[in-house]
Computed example of a mutant assay.
Amino acid sequence: MVAMTRKRKHDEEEACKIKTTTLLVPPPTPTTRQSPRLAKKQKLDYAQTALPLATPPDSTYGGDSPEATTTLTLDLPPVKKAFNKRVHWTPPTPIRTQASTTLKRGRKWEIFFGREIKDDCAGVTDELLCDFLENEVTARFPQGSTYTGATGQWSRTLDDGSTVVVKEGTTVVFLVEFEGDDLRKVQSFRDLVAEAARAYKSRFNQDAVLVCEIECLMDFI
């Protein structure tokens, strides 16, 4: 009876001892492209992974035979994988556009009508301008025209020979014509533009009327 009691006491003392286990992690296998610096770092990480693990027994016993419950918690450093990533360039998808538009040969005329009148402070009023555009411009160019208001300046020579910069309101009239290869049609249209400019110069006592003729490509789209 005494021998059995001593044996049970010996078993309980052995169960209460803390068992220490060493976790062995196989060393990393070097690769052919591994640099010496990376190999040294992996050896250091391997040395740190050999951790002592304690297995404390459970303090509660049931029955005649004591049982120990072990909880293992292992924190290992994250594994770093070195790899080369190749970036492949993908060309952008071409955008489909409509067929290019073929423009026709044409000409554009610009006529600059100044709104100042010598010895008349009122100048060319809106009523006088509308009447001129109706009877002199629209009558000559029934196919259409465009006009807009602007502010211009020019140099005027006085009687004593000195010059002065004159600023005045201006109305610009735009005219277009498809010419093709018919030069006679171009000359006919050019004469009508000159007639409208001379009519304005004579009616409103202007020093000059500026006319611009521009070759261009155009079409109604």
Rank of each mutant, 00 (worst) to 15 (best):
113 F>L: 15
76 L>T: 09
101 T>A: 03
166 V>D: 04
95 I>N: 04
59 S>L: 04
108 K>I: 11
18 I>R: 14
24 L>T: 12
55 T>I: 00
159 D>E: 15
146 T>G: 02
67 E>Q: 13
64 D>I: 12
64 D>W: 13
182 D>N: 15
25 V>I: 10
60 T>Q: 07
196 A>C: 07
100 S>F: 00
130 C>V: 09
204 F>T: 10
108 K>N: 12
181 D>A: 06
110 E>A: 08
42 Q>S: 12
119 D>T: 09
19 K>L: 03
74 L>Y: 06
87 V>E: 05
71 T>G: 01
198 R>M: 10
118 K>S: 07
188 S>N: 07
21 T>E: 09
65 S>Q: 14
117 I>Y: 03
31 T>N: 05
142 P>L: 09
189 F>P: 03
79 V>C: 07
135 N>V: 09
163 T>Y: 13
203 R>F: 09
92 P>A: 06
153 Q>H: 11
11 D>P: 00
181 D>T: 06
199 A>K: 12
24 L>Y: 14
40 K>N: 11
105 R>S: 11
216 C>Y: 02
127 E>V: 13
179 E>L: 11
219 D>I: 09
91 P>G: 01
162 S>M: 11
6 R>T: 09
19 K>W: 02
6 R>I: 08
3 A>D: 07
90 T>H: 09
78 P>M: 00
142 P>T: 11
104 K>H: 05
153 Q>N: 07
125 T>S: 15
4 M>G: 10
8 R>V: 03
210 L>Q: 09
156 R>L: 08
126 D>F: 01
76 L>W: 03
10 H>P: 00
70 T>V: 02
1 M>I: 01
35 S>I: 06
189 F>M: 03
10 H>C: 00
45 D>V: 04
